[in-house]
Design a protein around this nucleic acid. Structure first.
Length: 813
RNA sequence: GCCGGAGUGGCGGAAUGGGCAGACGCGGCAGACUCAAAAUCUGCUGAGGGGCCGCCCUCGUGCCGGUUCGAGUCCGGCCUCCGGCACCA
């Protein structure tokens, strides 16, 4: 018997050997078909946690499998290195964000290497490196040129006590500052946006990608397209120039039910139309709304609030005059910032009307309605009533009819609205990509010329929170010369949202040090788009939507071909603590992967994560089960190195059939990322081989074929032990350069099947029969069964149902 | 509230173009090896009941109903948990 399985020794040994040999360097000039396998890069938080392992280890197995299937596989890794936690660490512990980040990268890179993954480290990308973010700035300029980057006034979270802008993550759920507990207010600042809404309709089209349906649905909901009509209401306030208020509605069929009008508090018409005697109350309400955080304001549980402006407007269709209110449930950034109040057919309007004693006028009769007052808004379809010329029309039809009428009269037009807003990319933060813009008193907003990039983030910055954006206090950074006129000018001091970094990192992997553009276009043509992307579902809307948008911009810039960056997507589940809760330091349920690797070895830990359950499910990490994987790998060790009693005369078929069935199932599972059942299949194969070993002489070539195939199928899952055993069995280095075993369908097909015999649908007997048994034979066999006959008794057989290879069901009585 | 996803033994989970429920593993029980323990190996392990105990019967996939010869799987109505969105006119 060979010596014992000792993961610590062999794992270090092979990791060193693989690195020395450049086994996982992906050549760009390889004749095999390319396959770009991408897994999301980690944020440089400090330690590689179990979630990273759960995301990456199965991805590695799948990438290795692709490689064994004859593809030239690119499987790169990098670090998402800009972001708030680095800055917070600096504020809290006085460590410079750069040092904090690079120290973390150093540690995490080491941890990643213990995984034994086939990452091509020569392509590593670190997003906080000027070599990388230079191209963030370059992209920004391209977008600015095309009008896709613009500056506008937008509200930001503002802490009046800290005198600083806060990121959304720094605002606690109760709307207070995470540092000082002061209620956060909103403050309007000039900020930069990317015009993602210009691509809204294209982003709604997921027909060219194979993504999990839930992610597609989430993106569609996020974009939130709705078709409706913009309609004018006549404004008849003396001394006001504006003669109309425009509203957006998806329910033009309810227009005769309008009993009031609501404007958003920020609506520009409000100060103009407010009656003198209402002015004080209106201003107070506006101030109140301004002080509220978005979270508070959008809370649906709250009772409706609002104030009457004293002004009226006229419904052009009905000719009725209705009062104009302001209320914070009307949102300035959606539609026109004005809502027509139809309490009978909109629950929000209904609640508002109840509160303010406004009339509820039914114009779409619910089926079977007796004319009595409504208890709540009726939002379904019905027959239009009390609606002028449209009375009697089904409301669904009325939508189009009213829209046409309104368009004919020139009172409005059909419009499409989106829930999605443009992407605000400005962050009043230090640790991010500087926005390449200069403000000049003479020339205004001036983009930094390309040849002056990168604008390097200065390191000698006072990033402690003193009430200003850190870069704004750095004289050497802020003060510059206008690129256009040369006169003194000021740099933009905001930095970019870090989602900018993840927009295109997968392009940078192709040529991480290329300096003529974001990536070598020739390599772009070769490798892009990504064939398979894996990562957490938490990125369903933000990252994955931004990256699709960005790709389409790149396509329009002529940088990439095709419409989508990630052809196939897979979301792994989330790994929980042993208590079934989210892992967190405060709960004390964090499982450190390093300890598990130390104890069991990487191969065992990797396989265990894959064996836990379906990859997309995730679930609690428990310590008991890992033992089972350890035992299994030991059994493989023993089987692979055993010297069986062999006999040329032994029948090779049983072993071969067993093996080829296993290969068939394993291949199918690999294709579908079903690692848990894949491992179960390999366990069964291992157990069968162990039994064959004990039972007697085996056919020598069938045995060798079976053991070699087992190791080949093990290789993507547990790369180190597979390599070690492959070598010990005298096979040529490396197991990872071999082909995935193929199966012979003839051998994989079972010769005998178990035929289930039922009487009236209840299981009564199992018969082992040849797979090619005829229907007639099967029925006769079933009827003749000793176990079946008593259940038929004297009752007549009415029907016999036969499912080939599966069952016979005898219907009696 | 709306939109997704999921509910199967003591536990993680298998099995869905309807057809053997519980593969594989953990845990548990019993045995072998051992002075003993660990490790390893073998057997049993959904619940209930009956036996002429190497056998049989009944029940059983969140709940209620339906379709079907047959439902974990399909349909209708609920319940619970998880995730996302949440006054989007």
């Amino acid at each position: 018997m060979a010596d014992r399985y000792s993961p610590r020794e062999i794992e270090r040994k092979w990791q060193e050997r693989w690195e020395r040999d450049g086994l996982y360097r992906t050549p760009d000039d390889d004749p095999r078909p390319k396959f770009y396998f991408l897994t999301m890069l980690p944020y440089t938080s400090g330690d590689l946690h179990i979630g990273h392992w759960y995301a990456m280890a199965p991805s590695d197995a799948a990438a290795r499998y692709r490689r064994m299937r004859g593809y030239n596989v690119l499987f790169p890794m990098g670090f998402d290195a800009f972001g708030l936690p680095a800055e917070n660490a600096a504020i809290k512990h006085g460590i410079h964000p750069k040092k904090w980040t690079y120290d973390n990268i150093e540690r995490m890179r080491g941890q990643l290497k213990t995984m034994g993954a086939m990452f091509d480290w020569s392509r590593e990308v670190i997003t906080c490196d000027p070599e990388y973010y230079k191209w963030n700035q370059w992209f920004f300029l391209k977008m600015y040129e095309r009008g896709l980057a613009y500056r506008a006034l937008a509200p930001a979270n503002w802490c009046p006590s800290c005198q600083t802008v806060l990121a959304n993550e720094q605002v606690l759920p109760d709307g207070t500052c995470e540092r000082c507990g002061t209620p956060v207010t909103r403050r309007d600042l000039e900020q930069w946006f990317f015009r993602i809404t210009a691509y809204a309709d294209e982003l709604l089209d997921h027909s060219k990608i194979q993504w999990p349906e839930p992610v597609v649905v989430m993106q569609k909901n996020w974009i939130g397209r709705s078709e409706g009509v913009e309609i004018a209401f006549a404004l008849e306030v003396p001394g006001v120039d504006e003669k109309e208020i425009r509203v957006f509605t998806t329910r033009p069929d309810t227009i005769y039910g309008v009993t009031f009008m609501v404007l958003a508090p920020e609506h520009p018409l409000v100060p103009k139309i407010t009656a003198p005697e209402r002015r004080r109350e209106v201003e107070e309400y506006i101030e109140l709304a301004r002080r509220e955080t978005e979270v508070q304001r959008l809370s649906t549980a709250r009772e409706k609030t609002g104030v009457f402006t004293g002004a009226y407007c006229r419904n052009l269709l009905s000719g009725e005059l209705v009062p104009i209110f302001i209320a914070d449930y009307a949102l300035m950034w959606y539609g026109t910032g004005a809502v027509m109040g139809v309490p009978a057919h909109d629950q929000r309007d209904f609640e508002f009307a109840q509160k303010f004693g406004l009339p509820v006028k039914v114009v779409v009769a619910p089926p079977g309605w007796d004319g009595s007052p409504l208890e709540e808004a009726y939002e379904g379809p019905g027959t239009m009533v009390d609606s002028g010329p449209f009375t009697g029309m089904p409301s669904e039809e009325g939508k189009g009819a009213v829209a046409r009428y309104v368009e004919e009269k020139g009172w409005g037009r059909r419009r499409v609205m989106y829930r999605m807003r443009d992407w605000l990319i400005s962050r009043q933060r230090y640790w991010g990509t500087p926005i390449p813009i200069v403000y000049c008193d003479e020339c205004g907003t001036v983009p930094v010329p390309e040849d002056q990039l990168p604008i390097v983030l200065p390191e000698d910055v006072d990033f402690r929170p003193t009430g200003e954006s850190p870069l704004a206090r750095h004289e050497g950074f802020v003060n510059t010369a206008c690129p256009r006129c040369g006169r003194p000018a000021r740099r933009e001091t905001d930095t970019m949202d870090t989602f900018m970094d993840s927009n295109w990192y997968f392009m940078r992997y192709l040529s991480p040090h290329y300096d003529q553009g974001p990536f070598d276009p020739e390599l772009g043509r070769k490798w892009l788009p990504v064939d398979q992307y894996t990562g957490g579902a938490e990125h369903a809307v933000m990252h994955l939507l931004y990256a699709r948008f960005f790709w389409k911009v790149c396509r329009d810039l002529g940088l990439v071909q095709g419409d989508e960056p990630f052809l196939r997507l897979f979301n792994q589940g989330q790994i929980l603590g042993p208590d079934g809760q989210r892992m967190s330091k405060s709960r004390g349920n964090v499982v450190a992967p390093d300890e598990q690797v130390e104890r069991w070895g990487t191969d065992t830990f990797r396989c265990y994560l894959m064996f836990l359950g379906p990859w997309e499910h995730g679930g609690p990490f428990t310590f008991q089960g890992i033992q089972g994987i350890w035992r299994w790998l030991n059994r493989i060790w023993n089987v692979a190195l055993a010297t069986p009693r062999t006999d040329e005369a032994a029948d090779p078929l049983p072993l071969r059939k067993l093996l080829h069935r296993a290969i068939q199932r394993a291949t199918d599972d690999m294709e579908k990322f079903r690692f848990n059942t894949l491992i179960a299949t390999l366990m069964e194969l291992t157990n069968s081989l162990t039994r064959a070993l004990q039972e007697g002489p085996v056919h020598p070539r069938a045995w060798e074929e079976a053991v070699d195939s087992l190791l080949l199928m093990l290789a993507p899952l547990a790369p180190h032990i597979a390599e070690e055993l492959w070598e010990r069995r005298g096979r040529p280095y490396s197991v990872h350069q071999q082909s995935w075993p193929s199966y012979d369908p003839e051998l994989a097909r079972p010769e005998e099947v178990t035929l289930v015999v039922q009487v009236n649908g209840r299981l009564r007997d199992r018969l082992t029969v040849p797979a090619d048994i005829s229907e007639e034979e099967a029925k006769q066999l079933a009827l003749g069964s000793e176990r079946v006959r008593p259940h038929i008794g004297e009752r007549p057989v009415r029907r016999i149902i036969y499912v080939p290879g599966k069952l016979v069901n005898i219907v009696v009585g």
